[in-house]
Amino acid sequence: MKLRSAVTAGLAGLVLALAVPGSAFAATGDFGYSFTDDEGRALSVTLHHPSSDACVNLPYVGSEWVEPGHSPHNDTDQWATVYEGADCTGPTWKLRPHGKPATERLKVRSVYFQSPA
């Protein structure tokens, strides 16, 4: 059990480090969401300056084999379209820049940030 927790924490750090893009095509700010892991723990993930104009499958919830994430919060400078399915498929919902957090009823697996024209 403790090894699994350590591995989960290590992977979370790696995912967050890799989520910071080196490209100029990035939303400025943070995008976060919550999820429940396979041991029933409530966890949160924050993507710092996520990539724009590309579909992002959300870490830990971007697969149909796990429960989706919920309660997304777009605190970036760009509109975010969240998708219930992986690979930006399924029902969608738009979150305004620097908006309030959504409720846990909004399920998410992927997100797309629209860069300004």
Rank of each mutant, 00 (worst) to 15 (best):
L3R: 13
L3D: 15
R4P: 00
R4T: 12
R4K: 14
V7T: 12
T8S: 12
A12S: 14
G13F: 10
G13I: 08
L14N: 02
V15F: 15
V15G: 00
L16N: 13
A17W: 04
A17S: 13
A17L: 13
L18M: 14
A19V: 01
A19F: 05
G22I: 03
G22W: 05
A24R: 10
F25Q: 13
A26L: 03
A27T: 06
A27Q: 08
D30Q: 12
F31G: 02
G32C: 07
Y33F: 14
F35H: 11
F35R: 02
T36K: 04
D37F: 01
D38R: 11
D38V: 12
E39M: 09
G40A: 04
G40E: 05
G40Y: 05
R41K: 09
L43T: 02
S44L: 00
T46S: 14
H48L: 13
H48P: 00
P50V: 10
D53Y: 04
C55F: 08
C55P: 04
V56N: 06
V56W: 04
N57K: 09
P59N: 10
P59F: 09
V61F: 02
G62D: 03
S63C: 00
S63E: 06
S63F: 05
E64G: 00
V66E: 01
E67A: 15
P68R: 05
G69F: 03
H70Y: 14
H70P: 00
S71G: 11
P72S: 05
P72V: 04
N74S: 03
N74C: 01
D75C: 10
T76Q: 07
D77V: 02
D77M: 03
Q78C: 12
W79M: 10
A80L: 11
A80T: 09
A80I: 09
T81R: 11
T81V: 14
V82C: 04
Y83P: 04
E84L: 07
G85N: 07
G85T: 06
A86H: 07
D87M: 04
C88T: 07
C88L: 08
C88V: 08
C88W: 06
T89Y: 01
G90W: 03
T92V: 10
T92S: 08
W93V: 11
W93Q: 15
K94H: 05
K94C: 00
R96S: 11
R96Y: 06
P97K: 13
P97C: 01
P97F: 07
H98E: 09
P101H: 02
P101M: 02
P101C: 03
A102M: 10
T103S: 14
E104Q: 11
E104K: 13
R105K: 13
L106N: 03
L106Y: 01
K107H: 05
K107P: 01
R109Y: 01
V111I: 12
Q114W: 12
Q114A: 15
Q114H: 15
Q114D: 13
P116M: 08
